[in-house]
Amino acid sequence: MLLFTEYVIRGLFLGAMYGLLALPMSLAFVTVGTIDFAVGAYALLAAAIGATVGGTLGALLGLAGALVASLVMAAVFVLLKRAGHHDTIMIALSSFGLAVAIGSIVLASWGSTAFVRQGLDAVWTVAGIRINPQGPINLAVGLALLAGLTALLFGTGLGRMLRASAVNAQGAELAGIPVVAVQALIFAAGGLLGGIAGLLILYSSGLDFTAGLSLTLSGFAASIVFGVSNPARGFLGGLAIGVAEALSAGYGSGAMTALIPQFVVLLTLGLGMLGAGRYTGYRP
């Protein structure tokens, strides 16, 4: 029982990072109707820069790097829209290209060694379970960002503009909302949130240059498993996937653990739960 509790707690800490990645993915899916495949790559870039420079400065530079990368994606998005491509597949495909390009830049500049940094040496012992304080920090950061994002979406004018663009882009345009600019902002938010997630992963389990796409997949799995309609569900989905992975790693095999996000995606898609709400008039 103690072991089980320990796995669950470890899973929650891991899942907080998936939840963090899920936030921009569900935003992009609901408002732009596309997937930014590069979110995991932003996390990778932030972690690579953070690992090299180190400390607070490294974290800030890492975030800046991730933000710049996501601004590239935002610019590509705006250019594609300007050129009259409204096909969301094209946007997804170009973000896939960006993800591959970032992975390659990281490989060429840092090599194939894994990025990992020891943040805190202290170990807390709570009821017989040893916990590295980095875990609770991850969870707290995740919850704080979720709260911030929810407040932004439902409490501010910008949030209202975002939701309006999601419900009816054409109507929002007619009401004077700069829809494309608002949507470009979402790609930038992906860089910021992805970058933060990358830095937290750097100080927890670490990652290497191949992590970009698998992080994107985990984040997307998290964002759809309980329904893509609001960020809190995405975060919860992240926690659930984290716990499932930790339990599988504890009791099962490594190969099984690696497959959990993939099966979640296939199962959710197979049951037809993605995007069904778009046709039944739900309001994000």
């Binding site: 590509v76 495909l93 170009s94 896939f96 960006l98 591959v100 390009a101 970032i102 390659s104 830049i105």
Partner: peptide
């Protein structure tokens, strides 16, 4: 350089789509 293959692929893909 073999490592830069991905950058070339990704960059070309985006460019050609644009």
């Amino acid at each position: 350089a073999q490592e830069l293959q991905g950058l070339f692929y990704g960059g070309t893909l985006i460019l050609i789509l644009l």
